[in-house]
Design a protein around this nucleic acid. Sequence first.
RNA 1: UGGGGUGUCGCCAAGCGGCAAGGCACUGGGUUUUGAUCCCAGCAUUCGUAGGUUCGAAUCCUUCCACCCCAGCCA
Length: 560
Amino acid sequence: MSKPESHVTNFVRDVIEADIAAGKLTSEQVVTRFPPEPNGYLHVGHAKSICLNFGLAQSFGGQCNLRFDDTNPGKEDQEYVDAIMEDVRWLGFQWAGEVRYASDYFDQFYAWAQELIGKGLAYVCDLSPEQASEYRGWATQPGKPSPFRERSAEENLDLLERMKNGEFDEGSRVLRAKIDMASPNMNLRDPILYRIRKQSHHQTGDKWCIYPSYDFSHGQEDALEGVTHSICTLEFADHRPLYEWFLENLSVPAKPRQYEFGRLNLDYTVTSKRKLKRLVDENHVAGWDDPRMPTIHGMRRRGFSARAIRNFCGSLPVAKSDGVVSIAQFESAVRDDLDKHAPRAMAVLNPLKLVIENYAEGKQENLKAANHPKEDMGERELPFTREIYIDASDFNEDSSLSRKKFKRLVLGDYVRLRGAYVIKANRVEHNAAGEPTTVFCELVENTVGEDPPEGIKPRGVIHWVSASAGVKATIRVYDRLFLNASPDKGEEDFLTHINPDALKILDNCWIEPSLATAAPEASFQFEREGYFVADRFDHSASAPVFNMTIGLRDSWSDKV
RNA sequence: UGGGGUGUCGCCAAGCGGCAAGGCACUGGGUUUUGAUCCCAGCAUUCGUAGGUUCGAAUCCUUCCACCCCAGCCA
């Protein structure tokens, strides 16, 4: 169930509402589409587009199509098609009807190309790419008409047919629209409609030797599918006149309208399919679904819930400016969601053994612990034993530390074990390096769920795991992939900003037994540490593996 | 440079002639068996710049400035 998150209004929504108010269409007739090219994995920027397009359709009671813009077979792959469908579904959306492909319409596009030729609005051009570029002119300088611009319709039709039949080499000829070589908008200087590509296509195989350009496809695809509001990113604004030119000059069944909004940029993040592909191809990450990646696959494995991503995207204004959103804003949405929905549990990442000397050896109490402090999520059994682990950073031998500065265990003082007893540290054993190895404590009787007697004031509450009943686990701790807020802005290669410590593998962690049997992809809050998810692929009860999604908000550590 | 787009708090932004929403971040304070959550309070006499119109402008007009996009047989 993905109920539409509360949407702040935005200009696209306003346009649709105005269209409905003007009687141009009914609410149910609103049709949008998400049109990815299957040339890479989707990332957080696409998530915004998905949420916008599907969200708009959903809230108006209309429909949203998933359509692959597969007009360039050389860069595309079925692997990407499959991953994209999985991502859209995982985000909680369902496209209307079957998945669509631009390639479904190739025959129609071809007929339309012939129509344009018949109207004297398109021609086959034999200029080489270099020559074409010269002829195109410059910003301040109009282009020159191609010497092939005035070929007869018959000749053009014949040439196009032969291009289609594979009679010519790649790059030797293209079909162009005849528009205006002097237009200040470069996109109108006789844009390319078809180019020769003797490549097999992931959907159509070897049927075609020529493939339509984005411009000669997109508006017509929208028209064919009855898309009413075609939403794309800012860089396509210059293409809108072309988009409309085709709809104007072709016998299309409908006249969709294009609207542009600013794509999502996040600081400390790279969102360019090319750069993400480099990270994968050059092995800087373990793959497209590496939890450090801003891909939807990566975010999923990291433990960022679909709901959190949806909430985040829904909270983003849709505007025509291209700003950079702070990653903190995304993290805030993630914490907000996980705080409400993730059950609590305890895990010790850097164990320090603690022996409770006044607790019998071999004794075990199964204490009850609530799974959530506010939501009703039931309770679980928490085994308490004589030997337990606490985090090494939760103990300090310096008993002169002020209670305000260190609300944890200190030699000679009391602390509350979360969900269990109040204990006092009496002495400590060290290793050769002088590091504490075992802390010997005593517990205060009758302090489970009860305040300690007058005079005993625990410094704070720390988490713990039974040494004998707990389970050993591997925990992967993640940090941001880049150290620079704008990794791809400077002169230098963005790879120079990679954070070498973005992944730390801790393989001597201890988790409470209830965690070992967690289902893959189940999220938890490890109390006082952060949010963690059982790895989608590597986690098992016998060898538990958790990924850190994000730490708890920490308003204290940098203040001391 | 020609065309397209944008400039409002540290960041993202609402605002569409009537006297600067909201979120994130930040700063105080309260609650708390998570230094979490939650709660309460604070946070732009000012809207890229310079002029003009108006009783009144971030909102209208003009000038200038800055930034982004296009000049692929990519999308």
